[in-house]
């Protein structure tokens, strides 16, 4: 009886997964076609000759490798930066006293809720002012600390018991040492959430990289993907090939780290 239940569950999962992945399978399958026209009816789909040429072309016609590197580099630096700065700021908000603390924290949270479109122009002016336009700095610096990250870290640190910190302070540990040796190891779950959130947001970020850079050297993958769309037409097979390739590094990263992510989220054990 139990066994049948298991099998039913398994079949059910497979079905749900198929439903989930259908569009993506379709995407992958179409990326093997040579022509756009292959998005035709179901019947035609099996008559197509399959080829890997689109993947080769993505690399030969545009410096896609460079774009991938840019995306990975930016996303990794930004994620690391967030882990560092958000813990710092979050810790300060949770534990320190300073003037206007409350209103400052509120304003941080508020930023979370503002649509980015109205922030584009002021931010652009700022980047220009610093002379960072079309450099990695424009892609990295504004995002090194995210309001969401600060919010999450602050909320998490605030409810941690203070005893350990006090003990460390009595032992003569400096603030940085307390934060990195005592507090952060307890914050792994929050850090993991921040890392996933920031990494994904950055990996898929389009509008700002597009507006803040101009040369091919600084192009990231989402911007490159947008260039596969012409005025009225879409280069489907190559768009699909490129977006498949763009997904791959994250997927590998996920498969590689998923146990750590899931475990990391919990080693701190939620304090109830």
């Amino acid at each position: 009886m139990r066994k049948i239940g298991r099998i039913a569950l398994f079949v059910f999962l497979i079905l749900v997964l198929l439903g989930t992945l259908f569009p993506l399978i379709w995407m992958f399958y179409s990326s093997l076609f040579s022509h756009t026209i292959s998005l035709a009816s179901l019947a035609d789909i099996f008559k197509q000759k399959l080829t890997l040429k689109n993947y080769a072309e993505v690399f030969s016609q545009i410096p896609f490798g460079k774009f991938l590197f840019n995306s990975v580099f930016v996303a990794v630096v930004v994620t690391l930066g967030n882990l560092f700065f958000c813990s710092l700021v979050g810790y300060a908000f949770a534990r320190k006293r300073f003037p206007c603390k409350k209103s400052l924290f509120v304003s941080v949270v508020l930023v979370l809720m503002i649509p980015v479109h109205i922030l584009i122009i002021p931010l652009f002016i700022l980047i220009k002012f610093f002379g960072w336009y079309d450099t990695y700095l424009a892609l990295i610096a504004p995002w090194l600390v995210s309001p969401l990250g600060i919010f999450l870290m602050r909320q998490y640190i605030e409810v941690l018991p203070k005893d350990l910190e006090e003990a460390a302070r009595i032992d003569g540990a400096g603030e940085f040492k307390i934060l990195f040796r005592v507090v952060l190891p307890l914050c792994k779950p929050a850090l993991a959430v921040v890392a996933i959130q920031v990494f994904l947001a950055n990996w898929n970020s389009f509008l700002f990289p597009f507006i803040l850079t101009s040369s091919e050297n600084m192009r990231t993958v989402p911007v490159a993907l947008a260039l596969f769309q012409g005025y009225q037409t879409i280069d489907w097979p190559r768009l699909f090939a490129a977006s498949g390739l763009a997904t791959l590094p994250v997927l590998i990263l996920f498969l590689f780290f998923q146990r750590q992510i899931v475990a990391g989220l919990t080693t701190g054990a939620l304090k109830q």
């Binding site: 992945l21 569009p23 993506l24 994904l200 997904t247 997927l251 996920f254």
Partner: peptide, 17 residues
């Protein structure tokens, strides 16, 4: 991994599909 896959695929591409 399968369930996670859509959230790491480009939103623009998904919307087009």
């Amino acid at each position: 991994a399968g369930f996670f896959l859509p959230s790491i695929t480009s939103m623009v591409v998904i919307a087009l599909i």
